[in-house]
Amino acid sequence: MADPMKIRANVVGDSTEVKVLMSHEMETGQRKDAQGKVIPAWFIQNVRVVHNDKVVLAAQWGPSVAKNPFLSFKFKGGAKGDKIRITWVDNHNDTRTDEATIA
């Protein structure tokens, strides 16, 4: 089971600013280990952010995203106390969902 995400969500004017840290190896599949064996690709493929049952961000990621990714974005609307739910799914079909309250 992957480590929890670290989520901060704040109202800025008429938008909500969301900052997320995810714990993930994000292996490209291009690297080799000390024995010269290829380290298999292992990365987050889909990210989905839901606010009040509405998807506000859906992203497809590839192996070029860095280890322990940091994602920052804004969406229109959102009020203090609202919940946002973030889910990622990686290419091993491992997944993690975390929730945060907008401050």
Binding site: P4, K6, K19, L21, K67, F70
Partner: peptide, 12 residues
């Protein structure tokens, strides 16, 4: 500076 993954270690 923003989004330092050290926070993931702090949480753990």
């Amino acid at each position: 500076q923003d989004g330092n993954p050290a926070e993931l270690w702090e949480a753990r």
